[in-house]
């Protein structure tokens, strides 16, 4: 027979290594061709495997949007919350069971716009959760509306003459609010992204990894940038890795240089550390350290 059929038959003997970590009954996923979100899921699964944490002790929380679907596809305890409320839900999970490693995977519109306040307060309190913010510069699922991360002059369906609102610089926002770990990678830099996820999960406190991801159908098409593959090529040529760079310098201009790297790694007392420490001081021996619902 032809070569293709032999290839197909061959693959049926060996399952894809990701199949164990995905809810295969929901595949194929809804993400467009050349979207980078599948890559992010692979990197997250590899990082979870690398971290050695039992899968029963991991929870993934997502908000709404294209990235919000991650919680539905990854086969660990996961929850798809309402718009913008992934971080408060994750905070609740973490406080109810502090042993749980809670990972929030959501988009820029969900975490930084609608959930912006939750984001800054979780960073301020240094709640021990990991936040993966997938930044595709636009509200993709709802039709390409302008997001608080859309670069200046980029076109969006609600900014048909180009965006005039200055965007958020997500690493700087997290840094200035007191996050313990801040990194930014693109979906092309898979291995570094995997390492960053593993480091972020291992870091106590609020850790943020921003992942710059191509949106082919809305951002790239509206701005005539080609497909997601062309955006990956753009990241390949225009990303600069600068570990420890000043987070104030990390603005992303429309089709300008993107600075990637690990910017902040500073352990700070987490929310629960401070709680135990303070009530220990106030109540002395009468205070029992907080262990959550599950003893």
């Amino acid at each position: 027979m032809t070569e293709e059929t032999t290839v197909t038959e061959e693959t049926q003997d060996v399952a894809h290594p990701m199949d164990d970590l995905l809810r295969m009954d929901r595949m194929p996923h809804i993400w467009c061709p050349t979207c980078g979100l599948g890559t992010v899921v692979t990197a997250l699964a590899l990082a979870l495997g690398k971290s050695g944490i039992p899968l029963d002790d991991i929870a993934v929380v997502s908000g709404i949007g294209c990235t919000g679907r991650v919680a539905g596809y990854i086969k660990v305890d996961s929850f798809h919350t309402t718009h913008g409320r992934a971080i408060p839900f994750a905070t609740g999970l973490h406080l109810a069971n502090p042993k749980l490693k809670v990972i929030v995977v959501s988009g820029d519109g969900d975490l930084i716009a609608i959930g912006g306040n939750h984001f800054i307060h979780a960073a301020r309190r240094n709640v021990d959760i990991t936040v993966i913010c997938v930044n595709n510069f636009i509200y993709a699922m709802t039709g390409g509306q302008v997001a608080p991360t859309t670069p200046l002059t980029a076109n969006a369906s609600t900014m048909p003459y180009g965006n005039f609102e200055p965007p958020f610089n997500i690493p700087h926002l997290a840094d200035s609010c007191g996050a313990a770990y801040v990194a930014r990678w693109s979906s092309l830099h898979v291995r570094r992204m995997t390492t960053a996820f593993a480091e972020a999960i291992a870091t106590p406190g609020f850790s943020l990894v921003e992942v710059v991801t191509p949106c082919s159908t809305l951002y790239a098409r509206r701005n005539r940038l080609g497909t997601g593959l062309d955006l990956l090529k753009f990241y390949h040529d225009n990303c600069e890795i600068q570990h420890g760079a000043d987070t104030r310098s990390l603005n992303i201009d429309f089709q300008g240089k993107i600075t990637l790297g690990k910017f902040i790694e500073r352990p700070r007392p987490t929310f629960l550390d401070r709680l135990d420490n303070w009530y220990g001081q106030v109540f002395g021996d009468k205070y029992e350290p907080y262990v959550g619902d599950r003893k």
Binding site: T11, T34, G228
Partner: peptide
């Protein structure tokens, strides 16, 4: 290499990189 042909959406990432 094992390719699951019918899952592919033709993005060319693998071919390119």
């Amino acid at each position: 290499l094992h390719i699951i042909v019918n899952r592919c959406k033709g993005c060319r990432f693998c071919v390119e990189y």
